[in-house]
């Protein structure tokens, strides 16, 4: 059961994605950098040089450490790189949504909600 305390301060949408995905979402005005000296960003731009540890660390920061994130968007192909971490995430907040990217179309097989559906219907 969730209490209001769990979510009342969760006001930001965080993104882990490739440059175009992050740019697109930041254009919508969701980007936020906290006040210095922390200056924590609510997004991570992932490219070929970004290692999995950096992605995992951002995922950990957005889902566990920060209490001001309500939804985490992550490109599906990036989620694949830390799949064990994403699939074992069970907390109610923040909600994780996997989104497609320019080069990787959305695969319903990997969608966590649709996987839950299959589990419910006994597959």
């Amino acid at each position: 059961m969730t209490s209001q305390q769990d979510y009342k301060d969760r006001q930001f949408l965080a993104v882990i994605g490739d440059e175009d995905s992050v740019t697109g979402l930041l254009l919508a005005g969701i980007g936020h950098v906290t006040a210095p000296p922390d200056a924590q960003k609510n997004f991570l731009v992932v490219d070929n040089k970004t290692d999995n540890a950096a992605i995992e660390s951002a995922f950990e920061r957005f889902t566990t450490e920060r209490k001001d994130i309500g939804i985490v968007l992550i490109n599906q192909h990036i989620a694949d790189r830390i799949r064990h971490r994403v699939d074992t995430y069970t907390a109610a907040f923040p909600t994780i949504l996997e989104i497609p990217s320019k080069d990787h179309p959305y695969d319903p097989e990997k969608d966590s909600v649709l996987r839950r559906v299959r589990r419910l219907f006994g597959e």
Partner: peptide, 20 residues
């Protein structure tokens, strides 16, 4: 048009609101 142009002082104009 990418991360080189992002403003490091950006403030979210659209925010999440969670209600029961």
């Amino acid at each position: 048009y990418g991360q080189d142009h992002y403003d490091d002082r950006m403030q979210a104009a659209r925010r999440v609101q969670i209600t029961q």
